[in-house]
Design a protein around this nucleic acid. Structure first.
Lengths: 219, 219, 219, 219
DNA sequence: GATGAATGAGGTTTCATTCAT
DNA sequence: GATGAATGAAACCTCATTCAT
């Protein structure tokens, strides 16, 4: 995440206030969606005046983008730590899946915000956001798999880019399935169990099985 | 999809007009999102008065839901035909993946509409929509895998419900990756190639590999 | 009531249908008020098409006026019978009061309609309505009192017109107090008892006392 | 009148502006009725934007209720002053009648607003309004008559509650007869004279006679 | 820097009335 | 005579943004 969507003034205020504004913003945007979120309400809940809000952010959109920056980098950081380890691919994968479950339970707001972003209709904004959010993670995923390929740890005819893509697709939907209303109900329909009542271990185990050798005869 | 969200009057009009209204509605909702879609614009583009629109649908939301019903049942029908075949699981899977690619290219609007639905923030509506949209498909997926399990075609320690879930997750994100702005850019970031320039065959082949024996040593 | 507000076509239809249309109209106008009544709904409830409604009445207002004509003449008829009798004034008054109570309990709709009319804001319409509705009754009241005056039955220094006016004021508010929501609650506040639980006899007796010699020393 | 129907922001503005908004509102509501009054017009005439109007009042209804509060308390205050005096009952009554005439001529808008309220069709709102508006006045009227009863100033077999009710009925209709279109024409029909041309003294004198010993033989 | 009062365009929804069949 | 589909003006209300203090 490089682009910065706040004004100079926002940089100068105490971290605590920064934090409060963005937390309230994330809460509002993630629970109501971009259109239904109300910037006047966000200002009030954050304990600052609406005038000051506009000293910090030029538009509602900029506030939204700054909230996203914060939310996404928190999510990224958690996963990148794991990706940076020297574990073998499947071990990393398992750790990532487990971390994804935990992260989703703890940070529903951030995930919902991410979900909101993925539904962006405006082409320009969507493209810019995808670049901001997905570039780094994708690079790391691809590198990991490429390394596994080089060291002969995985089948040689796989395409690292597409496999990284598929794997991230699974993690992404898993996140949503823990956090976002529609996906939560969908998971419940598939498993027959409420998301909150699900056993993470079982999901991790099955997902590992799935990517390890889904739909193949048992050996 | 059972629930019906239009009024009696809508049932009585010629199919051609029904079609036009819903097509325009789907175009508007999928390109701008629910909040930014404008019913007056939809009415005008569909060539009817706004008053008549309200003779057909009680609220903007009902029009939206009817658009969704139409869009989703078209998508479902295409996939269920394949699911009903007597092919072996992996063959079915391949057909499904290929059909998903084609469907997504041809019906971007419907997929975008589905994507809009998955981002629904209102808990009640999200739950109701998930039930309407996911119930039948999930049941079929689960049944297919359960049958494969019974006939020994797949590894015996998999959970049919979770595997169906994971597989559908892959199809869903694949759909989005062909149709929705954010996901399209994300796919481009992963593959390095613009979605329109992608070779479906390669994606199908790699995805089959992925679910067949992802992350396992080549034999 | 002389003026007629319906079209030729309305005259020609069977009485039963006339009756039904006006009854439904009275029900709708009296329960929702003129503005909130919906002529399309009235047509549907009366079992005729809206097109036909406009064959019978040029405008919503004309339907309203015709409903009023019907409602008011029913109320008038009941009272005029009493007024036409040869009883002495106080006897007539008592009969009128008692009849008013009964009438109000039985014909809440008509009274509410009358109440709606008395709140008419448009000066022209208000004037025309008052003339249509009040002329005859007022004339009879005045005549009665003038006759009582001539025969020495009442104090000689009263003005028949004003006394008729005051007396009718009391009857009118009494009607409203039995039928119209606001006035019903107001009566409850004054008496401490719900209108439905009130004893008509007591009201009649007290009202007779009131007009007979209110606020004077007992002899 | 206790309940408050405006927002905090309305409390904070200068009295002059408060006054202007409510005066314009009362003018609009009383001349057109609740349904036909237009808040955008009220805002424009009051010299404020519609947005600001909604900062002061949550809904059209709340603006209406606040207008009523103002109008009714002005009317109440004028009468309560008289009621609080130590005059004998008939003296008080005469003062009240005379004040009612004057008040009605000077405050036609307020009376018309009150008239609008008395025609409220919605049961809940009607009940709430009656309680807000009638409770205090009724209590005072009843007390006055009860005191007169205790001191032997009036006939001993009257019911204070009903007599208060009847007396207030006369004052209420008198008010309407000076202010509201329908009632004005009705008064003209009864008296033969236009309301504006009426001599208040004569009305006061006759009404006092009416309540003092209506319909009784002269002694 | 900080405030919050003020703006006003724009969207959803209603319903009296028309008119082709 | 009878139908009811169709019209479209108009009203309430929201909220991003500005700016005087």
């Amino acid at each position: 995440m490089r682009n910065c969507h706040y004004k100079e003034a926002f940089k100068r205020i105490p971290d605590e206030r920064k934090e409060r504004i963005l937390e309230v913003g994330i809460e509002e945007f993630s629970s109501k969606g971009y259109e239904n979120a109300n910037i006047n309400v966000i200002a009030r809940k954050a304990g600052i005046s609406i005038g000051l809000m506009y000293k910090y952010f030029s538009t509602k959109e900029d506030l939204f983008l700054t909230c996203i920056s914060k939310g996404m980098s928190i999510l990224e950081d958690a996963l990148e730590e794991i990706l940076a380890s020297r574990d073998k691919l499947l071990v990393k994968a398992e750790k990532l899946i487990r971390a994804t479950c935990e992260l989703s339970r703890k940070n529903r707001n951030y995930i919902k915000l991410y979900n909101e972003v993925t539904a962006e209709k405006n082409s320009e904004r969507a493209t810019a956001l995808a670049r901001e959010i997905e570039s780094q993670t994708s690079r790391i995923y691809i590198t990991c798999i490429a390394q596994a390929l080089a060291s002969g740890d995985v089948r040689q005819d796989l395409d690292p880019r597409l496999f990284a893509f598929f794997f991230d697709n699974l993690l992404t939907t898993l996140q949503f399935s823990f956090s976002c209303e529609y996906y939560r109900e969908r998971l419940k329909i598939y498993t027959g169990v409420d998301t909150d009542g699900l056993n993470d271990d079982e999901i991790v185990r099955q997902l590992i099985k799935f990517i390890e050798s889904a739909f193949t005869f048992e050996k």
